[in-house]
Design a protein around this nucleic acid. Sequence first.
DNA 1: CTGAAAGCGCTAACAA
DNA 2: TTGTTAGCGCTTTCAG
Lengths: 328, 328
Amino acid sequence: MATLKDVARLAGVSVKTVSNVVNGYSFVKPDNRRRVEEALEATGYRPNLGARNLRRGRTGFIALVLPELSIPYFAELAGLVIAAAQEHEWNVLIEQTFGTLAGERSALASLGPHLVDAAILSPEALEADDFQLSVPAVLLGEHAVDVPISRVGIDNVAAAQAAVRHLISLGHQRIAAIGAHPHRGTAALRLEGYRAALAEASLPFVDELVIPALNYHRADGAAAMRSLLDLPSPPDAVFCFNDLLAIGAMRAAAERQVRVPSQLAVVGFDNNEESVYSSPSLTSVAPDKSAIARAAVDLLHQRVETGELLADVETPFSLQVRESTVAR
Amino acid sequence: MATLKDVARLAGVSVKTVSNVVNGYSFVKPDNRRRVEEALEATGYRPNLGARNLRRGRTGFIALVLPELSIPYFAELAGLVIAAAQEHEWNVLIEQTFGTLAGERSALASLGPHLVDAAILSPEALEADDFQLSVPAVLLGEHAVDVPISRVGIDNVAAAQAAVRHLISLGHQRIAAIGAHPHRGTAALRLEGYRAALAEASLPFVDELVIPALNYHRADGAAAMRSLLDLPSPPDAVFCFNDLLAIGAMRAAAERQVRVPSQLAVVGFDNNEESVYSSPSLTSVAPDKSAIARAAVDLLHQRVETGELLADVETPFSLQVRESTVAR
DNA sequence: CTGAAAGCGCTAACAA
DNA sequence: TTGTTAGCGCTTTCAG
């Protein structure tokens, strides 16, 4: 592999000149520039990023810390973050925490400043004390705790409220919620939106209709739905805090011969691609994932370049109405 | 951030001694070791990986080149590769190609030896000439072309054959295939397995029942299924070359009021988590993804450490029978 | 506008 | 057993 020095020797100039050409710096005598470019071409020179970054005190990487790639929402998001990072010549390092406190702590601990220039975090269990980051970071999802880190995401209260309003507008009166969680900030906000929608329609908040979920996988949604269907008077609609829970819920309903949407309307959250093709297809709150990824990366880039702390970013969302609430 | 030198000064020894302790090398006088360890602790020293790797001529990264993270199979695989790589202290860099030749070429081109120590490739369009890698690599999926790179994966012919045999054993006679592709090696092998299963049961190979798919997304499966249902005599079973195609096919069937499995049996390939919860759940060929990820990473590690070229690895698979072929 | 040279933090050959 | 020191390849003062 050719080094700067090799190129310099071949072009008959100093490394400085080559470096100048490579980095598009200042003014280089046209003649020298030509010779350097020829030498660059001839050697097939490619800069050694490690050396460059060692010198610049940068690494060229950002970390993306998330629960699990096998969760479609995070997989999609990761793809978008990678694409956005590429535009700033950043490579993305993905760390999976599996949603555990230990996993999240160990991911954070490994984030030395020599490894990454910045980090995008999607924590689910971290506590306030844990946020002693050594690199700039941005939070996706919620401030589970109050920490001075910029956040990028949608207005979860408004989004949940829109989802439940939709169910109410369809005439549903007994609306359940799946996904309550004792420590997860996002869950608290979605629950708040659910409450608000019920309240503004003067519908009662019924404790037994709010089902907690420790995880947000399909299996958890199915289990929650079963417990709901076992109730003396089951709900006629259910708002699930993510699409995976909703898919599980629909599966459980099908197993009990409960028809969706005629007997039970279902709304999810995340708008996974999977939800467009399920039978019935799933009505879902659709955060603009692309906007989230871009905003997070741009915020960090700004932060790293200028050093200035930046404000939170609120990204848009919409409600995608499909067969699980309105039959074709 | 503390450097080796800082630690050495604090401990009153040379950097060499500190380096020895940090790297667990040779013999260090117990007294010195203790003082170094104290200094390490006091400063919270963390080695600068960039510098270490620059010196060692390693980067500490491997690349994982795949079509798209939004495809569940690759998302799952990526998660497993990250986990396997961690055990060799490797970080994983994911590059998305979107299955295009241009995307794959540009991903390969960016894989300089300064960026990664090795690469795991899942190409779909690359041609033989493109495989001029500058780092050790292993191929997931098939040798689309004949190149001297180790491959890790299942026996696609046998797997496809098992899937179609299952359909035949259920009494199906008119079995379609969705996913034929002019250049994709994997598609050719799965088609071969399909043919073999038909042949051994003395069933005719019917051209119009083999539907090509340029992409393997849900939408492609739905489109293919529609064309199959438009046939004067539609199939009574369909073997899809991946689960996404199968999910799309089931969706299209549902839209035409065709019942699965009573009127149409469906088998997929990949065994996505999604397929366990669809209604009906999907019978699918299940490659051992964890074994694939581990084998690929271990092979590369071996290769990088010892320099020796290693043989291909064939990983196991099974057929998961679910409701799409056998009603509960 | 360009060259010489220092040094980013680390490892390892060589000396002591 | 440990210290000294020369780089890994690059960027960047500082002179010229």
